[in-house]
Amino acid sequence: MSFRATPSQTVGPYFVIGCNRLETNELAGPGVSGERIEIRGRVIDGDGIGVPDAMLEVWQANGAGKYAHPEDTQDKAIEPGFRGFGRIPTDEKGGFRFSTIKPGPVPGPDGKAQAPHIVVSVFMRGLLRRLVTRIYFPDDPANQEDPVLRYVEAERRTTLIAKKAGVTGGLEWNVVLQGEHETVFFDIGL
């Protein structure tokens, strides 16, 4: 017997009631090694207005490029306390920030390594299902060969690559929902 998947529904405006327990914008504690980064940005709707009721969920490998998950069987260690998950709601102006370490390159299809990246789910009132996107890093030569970026038209790839901002380790990356500079969102089949 084959069962059929349950449809998605919007998180609505009140997800904080159930979701705030897992909110965190510090993904890497002091015992986690790697290059410290802080990513700031805004979620912007089709009128150019910040979305005050969005929630991002991010998932990343550690600095060595290993996920804290049993199906990542690479012979690399995971620091105790590193989960690689963050849940970050936007503020009243649509802004968000989170601190982490830059992930290392992880294996990709066809035996090619992927450029360092963080995968992101975007939830909000008005989105009947999540949006999936990625954050890549500026000036990383691996971006040129990345097996996922290859699927994206060259002129739109910039929406996936964070920009250097402010102090050392500071990065800016925005979620633009509509329009000329619309962020690239992915279809992963689900």
Binding site: W59, A61, Y67, A68, H69, P70, E71, D72, R83, G84, F85, V106, P107, G108, P109, Q114, H117, V119, R134, P147, V148, Y151, V152, V184, F185, F186, D187, I188, G189
Partner: peptide
């Protein structure tokens, strides 16, 4: 943009 699922999508928080 359709992409294959990679290790990044096949793993997830526990």
């Amino acid at each position: 943009v359709a992409i294959p699922q990679t290790l990044s999508e096949i793993t997830g928080p526990m």
